[in-house]
Computed example of a mutant assay.
Amino acid sequence: MEDCLIENQTTFYSKAEHYWKEVPPTVDGMLGGYGSISSIDINGSKNFLHKFLGEGQGKTGTGCALDCGAGIGRITKRLLMPLFRTVDLVDVTQEFLDKARTYLGEEAKRVENYFCCGLQDFQPQPECYDVIWIQWVIGHLTDDHLVEFLRRCRSGLRPDGLIVVKDNVAYEGVVPDDVDSSMCRDLNVLHRLVARAGLNIICEEQQQNFPEEIYVHTLALR
């Protein structure tokens, strides 16, 4: 799908890395100037995630989570740390991960790993994570790299583990963004890529109470 939109993969990724290096390491920076929606976002994510956590058959454990495209650790701090014993962070921008060490405060001691790596190259450890949280970052991966990344994430899950993708979706087709070198896919495209990765969508919801111009869906995958 993206072949007609991305002329050069190397340029596509390098432009995105350059863009994020110029973004301030703040909550507002992580949210593209929409810092005011952070609490709405976190509360929606908590309600979504709580459906799957707990004890019993099919329930997801609360040992270790991975925050993909973690930035300064906004999601780690407010969503994952309260629910999981340990969290790993992965982001392509070292400055953000350095900031996370102070932003997370005392809770930073429960971070086991800070991985500075693009998701197109990141390899989760096998059977390591109960939840792999991927938010507002899949637009920075080509279709093929997203499929490959999701496959690697599947192998990184513990039994009954869960992959959660939360991201902007387009109303139709694929919409490129030259500013941050990303693309926004519609749900049909995203569903096809998930299926190519060998994963099933076990739950899907639209995030409510966001500004009208921010159309976000959350998908739980196994």
Rank of each mutant, 00 (worst) to 15 (best):
K21L: 11
Q208W: 06
K21F: 00
D186E: 07
G29E: 07
F210W: 01
V164M: 10
C153V: 04
A16H: 03
V169M: 06
L146G: 02
A170F: 02
R85E: 15
L146N: 10
I72W: 00
E106Y: 09
E212P: 02
E172G: 00
I75V: 15
R196M: 06
D130H: 04
M183F: 14
C4K: 13
D67R: 10
E106H: 10
G63C: 12
I72P: 07
A170D: 08
I42L: 10
V194F: 15
L187T: 15
I134A: 05
C64G: 00
I163H: 04
R192A: 11
G198V: 10
K51A: 12
C184H: 00
D41F: 02
G161V: 07
V179H: 11
E95Y: 00
V179E: 13
R151Y: 09
S39P: 00
E22C: 14
N47R: 14
R154L: 01
S182C: 07
I163A: 04
D98L: 11
E205Q: 13
G63N: 11
A16N: 12
R78W: 13
N47V: 10
E213G: 05
G156T: 06
I214F: 09
S45G: 07
S36N: 07
G198R: 08
I75E: 02
P24N: 08
L80R: 02
C4P: 04
I6N: 00
V23A: 05
P82S: 12
K109V: 15
K99W: 04
D167C: 09
